[in-house]
Amino acid sequence: MTQARPSDDAAGSFSPQRAMLMRVAYRMLGSVADAEDVVQEAFIRWHATDRSAVREPGAFLRRTVTRLCLDQLKSARHRRETYIGPWLPEPVMEEDVQEDVTLPLMLALERLSPLERAAFLLHDVFGLDFDEVAQTIQRDEAACRQLAVRARAHVREARPRFEIDRQTGKEIAEAFFAASRSGDMTALGAMLAAGVSVHSDGGGKRPAALEPIIGFEAVMKVHESLVAVFKDGGSKLVRAGLINGLPGFISLEADGQIQTTTLDIEDGRVTAIYIVRNPEKLRHLN
Rank of each mutant, 00 (worst) to 15 (best):
E116Y: 13
L107G: 06
I137G: 01
P91Y: 04
Q146G: 15
V133W: 04
E95M: 14
Q146V: 04
R152P: 13
S113F: 11
E99R: 03
F130C: 05
P89N: 03
V101M: 10
L147P: 05
G127I: 00
E141D: 09
A142L: 14
P104S: 01
E132P: 01
R145P: 07
E116L: 11
T102P: 09
S113D: 08
V97E: 14
R111A: 02
R150N: 15
P89W: 09
L122A: 04
L103A: 04
C144T: 02
R156T: 12
R111C: 06
T136C: 04
L107M: 12
R111T: 15
R117M: 00
I137K: 05
E116D: 13
H154F: 12
P91V: 00
L107V: 05
A142Q: 09
D140P: 00
P89D: 00
R150Q: 13
G127H: 02
V125P: 15
V125S: 02
F130N: 05
P114D: 01
L109G: 03
L112M: 08
Q146D: 12
D100I: 15
L115A: 11
E116T: 12
F126N: 08
R139E: 09
V101H: 10
A143F: 05
A108D: 10
L105D: 05
R139N: 04
E99S: 06
A151V: 01
E116S: 10
R156V: 14
V92P: 15
P114H: 04
Q135I: 14
A134M: 02
P91D: 00
R156I: 08
R145E: 06
E95T: 15
C144V: 07
F126C: 03
D140G: 07
F126H: 13
V92Y: 14
V133F: 09
A118C: 00
E94F: 09
Q146N: 15
R159K: 11
Q138K: 13
E99M: 07
Q135L: 15
D124K: 12
L107R: 10
V149E: 10
P89Q: 01
D96S: 13
E132M: 11
L121C: 05
P89A: 05
R150G: 10
A142W: 06
L103I: 01
V149N: 11
V125D: 04
A143N: 05
